[in-house]
């Protein structure tokens, strides 16, 4: 079971992601924006990070760039949870260092499918 950091500025989205992951046996820490997430990621090592793109303070793309700079997160799965299915956005995410992406609307099965791709 993995220790996962879930980042989203929307409380309902955070709750849904956390709930789904916990139901599937993972432990979850959440954060409301990229900045808070980065702080938490520095305090403890997560096995995977799932982040929204559009957030105040620090957006998801910047968060991924910053995380990849940390020695602890060079190989860590970092997933983008995004509403944009446009290919440019995916490319931007990949270029920043994202492992993969998940397109909203949020669906528990899709989330778990994506998580299974990167952690046990």
């Amino acid at each position: 079971m993995a220790n996962i950091l879930a980042v989203d500025d929307s409380a309902s989205m955070r709750q849904m992601v956390s709930h789904t992951l916990k139901q599937n046996g993972h432990s979850v820490v959440d954060a409301p924006d990229g900045k808070a997430a980065l702080d938490k990621a520095k305090q403890q090592k997560f096995d995977a990070v799932i982040t929204d793109v559009n957030m105040p303070n620090m957006d998801g793309i910047t968060l991924i760039k910053e995380l990849r700079k940390l020695p602890n997160y060079r190989f860590t799965p970092l997933l983008l949870l995004t509403t944009e299915s446009a290919p440019e956005k995916k490319q931007e995410g990949k270029a920043a260092g994202a492992t993969g992406w998940l397109v909203k609307p949020f669906d528990p099965e899709k989330l778990m499918g994506a998580v299974r791709k990167v952690v046990r």
Binding site: S10, M13, M16, N54, M55, P56
Partner: peptide, 13 residues
């Protein structure tokens, strides 16, 4: 934009 975006994301779910 972000506020609209969040609503859209949740509404879809």
């Amino acid at each position: 934009f972000r506020a609209a975006h969040s609503i859209k994301g949740g509404a879809g779910t």
